[in-house]
């Protein structure tokens, strides 16, 4: 029983760690797509952010400066996307694809040039990265059975990013449904003409949305290189930007369901990591790759309308052109 509990605690702990960048990136995608701009470059922006954070933290020794650089880099990429697709009505998919590929090459190129470590950034010392935070009394309570263990292992001892992310979901939901910004954001993704006739600048709304997208992707990237790990590693996003996109679709572009989808994907990953090679009753051994494919298979199934149709914001992907 106790063994089971500690396994459970370990899995939940891992779920939180793995889901953090997914949730941040998925929320980033939520802002872009709710405003009517498709963004398949969550991956690229995260990777760019991870590199900027790793590089600047290594150079300055400050994790916070690294975070700032990550946000700047990611917002800059989002602004290129906005310039191409909002201002000049370029194809949002092509632009996103370009961004993903550009960063996949640019980050290791700059890394190699600056640090000569084969594209990585140098390993970060303790000051240059975000360390787990121990909440008050966590150590004292660690020995208390069950509750103490849950508190000290699951609730305490995470990176600041984990707490920021858990707060970001209700904040996003509040912004989206209770604020003027959210109202206009949702409107511009559904019917930009209605927003225009209401006297609101459609283009500026979409730029604002993409700025938020950039910030969140930057934070997610910084988490990867200065929180979860201690350096930027080539292709360290490894498809997490696309898993986030899948979660966003699976969560039907709503904050809480999107978070739950991220939890589900991360949980499956954590369980899989713990149970690797374990022969379970009835199901047998679950192959790793089955868990890897799960987010994508589920998203296709949802997109095809086999379990509850997932409908994108109506103006998504369509540039807004006013004059005929």
């Amino acid at each position: 029983m106790l063994e089971f509990l500690s396994l459970f605690v370990l899995i939940i702990d891992a779920t939180l760690r793995v889901s953090t960048p997914l949730i941040l990136a998925a929320l980033a995608g939520l802002f872009a797509e709710r405003s009517g701009v498709f963004d398949i470059a969550l991956e690229g922006k995260m990777l760019g952010g991870a590199f900027a954070a790793g590089a600047v933290a290594a150079a300055t020794g400050s994790a916070w400066l690294g975070l700032g650089a990550a946000v700047l880099a990611s917002v800059a990429l989002a602004m290129v996307h906005a310039y191409a697709c909002v201002t000049h009505q370029g194809n949002q998919i092509i632009s996103g694809m370009a961004m993903n590929i550009l960063i996949a090459g640019l980050a290791p190129t700059l890394g190699l040039a600056w640090f000569s470590l084969g594209g990585q950034t140098p390993a970060l010392g303790d000051g240059a990265r975000f360390r787990p935070i121990t909440l008050p009394f966590a150590d004292a309570l660690a020995d208390v059975p069950i509750l103490g263990e849950i508190y000290s292992e699951i609730i305490s001892g995470h990176n600041i990013f984990v707490y920021i992310t858990l707060a970001a979901v209700p904040i996003t939901a509040w912004f989206l449904y209770r604020s003027r910004f959210g109202l206009r954001l949702r409107a511009v993704g559904e019917n930009p003409e209605a927003v225009d006739t209401a006297g609101i600048n459609v283009y500026w709304m979409r730029y604002q949305a993409l700025i938020v997208t950039g910030i969140l992707c930057g934070v997610a990237g910084a988490y990867l290189s200065t929180g979860q790990n201690a350096a930027f590693i080539r292709n360290m996003t490894a498809g997490q930007g696309f898993i986030a996109l899948a979660a966003l679709i699976f969560g039907k572009w709503r904050p809480v369901p999107t978070m739950l989808a991220c939890f589900m994907f991360a949980f499956a990953d954590a369980v899989q990591a713990r149970l690797q090679g374990v022969d379970l009753p009835i199901v047998g051994v679950i192959p790793v790759q089955f868990v890897d494919a799960l987010p994508f298979v589920l998203t296709v199934v949802v997109l095809a309308g086999f379990i509850g149709k997932s409908v994108a914001p109506k103006s998504g992907g369509i540039p807004y052109v006013k004059e005929r």
């Binding site: 290129v80 310039y83 191409a84 697709c85 000049h88 009505q89 370029g90 194809n91 949002q92 092509i94 632009s95 694809m97 370009a98 961004m99 993903n100 590929i101 550009l102 960063i103 996949a104 090459g105 640019l106 290791p108 190129t109 190699l112 594209g119």
Partner: peptide, 19 residues
């Protein structure tokens, strides 16, 4: 990796920012 950068730039300028 430099080639990948060029590839990304080509997609960006010949595709997304074509007009």
């Amino acid at each position: 990796d430099m080639v990948v950068v060029i590839q990304g730039l080509v997609i960006l300028f010949s595709g997304a920012m074509e007009s």
